[in-house]
């Protein structure tokens, strides 16, 4: 399966007291610091358990998402990625975790926001490519397991998939060991460097 429209969500560890509206200001500062990368901000803090506040861009949207009543950072890749599945996953996870790190470093009024690294939701936002079925899970599992092993540096983890043809394909991955966002980024980095010594060409742009 050629993985596309990959989404990853890392959950906030300390959601109490976090105001979604604070992210409008945070995302606006990101826009000001960028050079035309981000398109706009969409504010849906008024809806229950919704997409929260989104930072819209051409390639991917980033949002402080409250779907399922669980606050987290959702990285929603929209444009196609090239490379093999591991390269795509590496790119998506690295991007998502970088945004988590960036948010953790923001001086939010309530204090620092922490993302739990030991759990994430992996989604494919394309019902045609990836219907939410056991067959899709079988097809995706090897690649997902591989990236999870890299992220968790060999620590044990569980993959939870529920068949529901109506929902988009989603797998919850949870490690039994606690991880910080920075640790996951380091694990990806270490793995990338190991690969670099081998056959991977990490300098290649993954976006088409």
């Amino acid at each position: 399966m050629d993985l596309q429209r990959i989404n990853v969500k890392f959950f906030v560890e300390n959601p109490d007291g976090i105001l979604l509206t604070d992210f409008i200001r945070i995302f606006n500062s990101w826009i000001q610091a960028s050079d035309g990368e981000y398109y706009d901000i969409a504010d849906y803090h008024h809806v229950h358990a919704g997409p929260g506040v989104l930072l819209i861009a051409h390639e991917a949207n980033i949002s402080i998402d409250n779907t399922g009543n669980r606050l987290g950072l959702l990285y929603n890749r929209k444009q196609p990625l090239s490379g093999n599945n591991q390269e795509k996953l590496d790119f998506v996870f690295r991007s998502a975790l970088e945004f988590c790190r960036r948010i953790e470093e923001e001086p939010a009024p309530q204090g620092k926001i922490k993302f739990g690294g030991n759990e994430f939701l992996f989604l494919i936002n394309d019902r045609l490519l990836a219907p939410n079925s056991a067959a899709t899970f079988r097809a995706v599992s090897p690649d997902l397991e591989k990236i999870a092993k890299t992220l968790y540096a060999g620590a044990e983890f569980l993959m939870d998939h529920r068949n529901d043809a109506r929902e988009i394909f989603a797998v919850k991955v949870k490690s039994l060991v606690h991880f910080e966002v920075l640790e996951l980024l380091h694990n990806l980095q270490d793995h990338g460097e190991l690969k670099k010594e081998g056959s991977w060409d990490t300098t290649r742009s993954l976006s088409k």
Binding site: Y44, P51, L54, N61, N125, D126, R127
Partner: peptide
């Protein structure tokens, strides 16, 4: 609902 999720911003 599906289309808002896959092609728009979920709304």
């Amino acid at each position: 609902a599906d289309l808002s999720e896959e092609y728009a911003d979920g709304i």
